[in-house]
Write a protein that binds this DNA or RNA. Structure first.
Length: 106
DNA sequence: TCCGTGACGCGAT
DNA sequence: CATCGCGCCACGG
């Protein structure tokens, strides 16, 4: 599995009414620091819940009409805002941490 | 093979 | 709050 497909599957896990940030998606995909790659994937892919991915702090980073559309789509999922940003206290999706456990000693 | 390109994140100012 | 500078780095042309 390459980075691109890991990022895609992470994004697909974000449920309706929840959001994640570019950075958290990157970390969930096992690539901390690869927020820009998340952007790249969103730009090149179709069929992803792109509107549920936000900038740090719950900010919509898209400019112009796309930004408006993103906000509308989120509001349509009952996501609430505090000013320009999503109320992360209520809507941030926490990716399940994959705990590294030692192999069982046989 | 090289290189410009990002819907970024974060600390400093 | 707004801006800036810098680190980041896979991907497509």
């Amino acid at each position: 599995m390459n980075m691109q497909s890991r990022i895609v599957s992470a994004i697909r896990k974000i449920p309706r009414g929840k959001v994640a940030t570019y950075g958290s998606v990157a970390r969930a995909a096992g690539h901390p620091g690869a927020a820009r790659q998340v952007v790249g994937v969103l730009r090149r892919s179709f069929g992803l819940p792109w509107h549920r991915v936000l900038g740090a702090g719950g900010q919509i980073k898209l400019r112009g009409d796309s930004g408006i559309e993103q906000r509308l789509r989120l509001e349509a999922e009952a996501v609430t805002f505090r000013g320009r940003r999503v109320d992360m206290k209520r809507h941030e999706f926490k990716f399940s941490r994959k705990i590294r456990r030692r192999k069982k000693n046989h």
